[in-house]
Design a protein around this nucleic acid. Structure first.
Lengths: 160, 160
DNA sequence: ATCGTTGCAAAGTATTTGCATCGGT
DNA sequence: ACCGATGCAAATACTTTGCAACGAT
């Protein structure tokens, strides 16, 4: 289990290395560390958190390099940027099923971000085209909500 | 026409004045100037632009007061905050038909923001409730798009 | 050896805040 | 006269950038 995950990360790292080469970018230790750190995250994270994670792998990683690497990661289908309009941006690794449109649901009580599919968004894109003569490039649906359970019990069942 | 508009602004200003009183806020010249400036705008504007507009009415208005007044305006159904995830926030006066949910369509070619109705968003809210046990408070749908006409002719027909 | 990349610290951008003064009530 | 509101400038929060040294190719 541990081993298979390590293998899969290694394989992914090689993919990233060759992606970098293709784009004419150099495969530095810092970039690979940032990639590995990002790839290991299951949930949403901020640039600052990614810096912490990456430094555990390679403590020479700087904040500037994280910020300079993020556009490469989001441009190579490793990460997705999630902007919930809160000052800082969040990032998340691409997962299976992420091909379809998703909406972000932000819980105002526990500050967590959930994502659920919103397939009608792609249909909506064609409405935009015909109504405005604009061709959609990306769409973002964000819902702010209160946690029903939190309101009643004072704790969030999804909190862990 | 000019006159009727002036009358309507004056009437609105009185409404705002009594709204301030109700909330226990003082009706200062600066707040009234900011209100009048906001109320006169037909399109989206930023805090900085609002400062400029307000200063034409009362040049003692400061940036800090604009930022301190904006929450009052958005809380009193005068303005709506429109966050397109671009660093700065936009604001727009409420209009007829704004009762229903709207989506923001941002043109990547001419940087303008269009709004079109997206009634399915309120239906979507109930989906969120049943799937996640969260009660939606607000929703935001943003579409980034390219202008078809701009791509072909190099100019945007909506540009004025 | 080249030249893209790095860390650092300074700069930037949008917004917020501390504080002495001002002014609506 | 009280105390909320104001302008100013400093502070904040996140991100970007200039520059000399570094290191992947």
């Amino acid at each position: 289990m541990e081993n298979s995950r390590r293998v899969s990360i290694t394989a992914a790292r090689e993919k990233f290395r060759s992606f970098l080469a293709l784009q004419g970018h150099r495969a530095t230790n810092q970039r690979l560390a940032i990639f590995a750190a990002a790839y290991a995250q299951a949930e949403h994270f901020t640039a600052e958190q990614l810096l912490d994670y990456a430094r555990k792998i390679d403590d020479s990683v700087s904040r500037a390099t994280v910020y300079r690497t993020l556009p490469i990661l989001t441009g190579s289908a490793v990460l997705r940027e999630v902007d919930i309009g809160s000052g800082e941006k969040f990032y998340r690794t691409y997962r299976e099923g992420d091909g379809t449109q998703v909406a972000q649901v932000v819980c105002l009580d526990c500050d967590r971000i959930f994502e659920i599919s919103a397939p009608f968004m792609s249909w909506y894109g064609s409405t935009v085209s015909s109504k405005l003569g604009l061709t959609p490039v990306s769409q973002r649906l964000q819902v702010s909500a209160h946690c029903d359970a939190f309101r009643k019990t004072g704790t969030c069942p999804r909190r862990n």
